[in-house]
Simulated assay, not measured.
Amino acid sequence: MISISSNLNLMIKAAEKASKSVIRDFGEVEKLQVSKKGPYDFVTKTDKNVEKILIEELSKSKKNYSFITEETGKINNKDKENFWIIDPIDGTTNFLHGIPHFAICIAHISNNEIISGLIFDPIKDEMFFSEKNKGAYLNNQRLRVSKKNSTEDCLFSSNHEGTKFSDLNMRCSGCAALDLAYVACGRLDGFFHNKINIWDVAAGALMVVEAGGIINEINKFDIKNIDIRASSSAINSKMLEKLVNF
């Protein structure tokens, strides 16, 4: 049985509660695709509702922790050393189009250091989580990064700019958090993206490291301007060589 902290337990319970609303609303999105209004306003409401649930749940036993969230921005409470970082739905465009590839993301940062991270894919029921110096897990199974060491055998992910730039074997999934989780569990070998937000990468950055991978210094939590490079340790130097001008 894995031993997890009370904070990570709180994060898991909050994500599971919020996921009920996400799964219900995702079912509605397909109906809205064919309506004149479309699903845009509805998805915005879902985002805000999920964020509200997460904030309420996380605040129950940690009333003083501050927040950084995608929808609201910074919420400063009494404790300004401990932050919850929340992305209610990472992969909103996928969600909007009825594509079942998105995630709820929560990270705990203490004194500018990522202590724990959670990425929950509610449709596939995959709960990725990690804690500093305690490893990374998927539904209680320990994760390790890929051991492939030839770029020709590897699969990488990025956004549109990254896929156009690189001659690596690329995918663009539309969900950065799951890309990082997939690097941690060996489904992908590397992920890179420029000018990305902290709530997209905080949880996954810790996960990759705890699964034995390598991640660059992510600009000391510059909230909206992060250039991230994450990969297995076996392929890191080769990936970075390919990205020297990116």
Rank of each mutant, 00 (worst) to 15 (best):
I109Y: 05
S19Q: 07
I198A: 04
V29Y: 06
H193M: 13
K48C: 01
G174Y: 08
F26P: 02
A18F: 10
Q33G: 03
E210V: 06
A230E: 12
A203G: 07
P88C: 11
N225Q: 10
L188W: 13
I228G: 00
K17L: 15
T69E: 11
N112G: 01
A234W: 05
A18D: 01
P39E: 07
E131L: 04
N197R: 14
Y137A: 01
T46K: 01
D125F: 06
A203M: 09
V201R: 15
I85Q: 02
G204D: 01
V183S: 00
V209K: 10
D167E: 03
N7F: 07
H97T: 13
M11Y: 00
T163R: 05
K164Y: 08
V209D: 03
C175A: 06
E51L: 13
I85C: 06
A103Y: 05
S35N: 03
S66A: 10
L168Y: 07
K74P: 15
K74L: 14
K31V: 15
K134W: 01
V29K: 03
C172A: 01
S6A: 15
F26R: 11
D189W: 03
H160F: 11
T92C: 04
K74R: 07
A234T: 05
F192N: 10
V201L: 02
I196Q: 01
N111M: 11
C154I: 04
I123A: 13
F192M: 13
A107Y: 02
I119H: 00
A230D: 04
I86E: 15
I4W: 00
D87N: 09
C185D: 07
V201H: 12
E70Q: 11
A205N: 09
M127A: 03
K238C: 10
D90N: 11
K52S: 15
N219F: 14
I99L: 13
C172N: 04
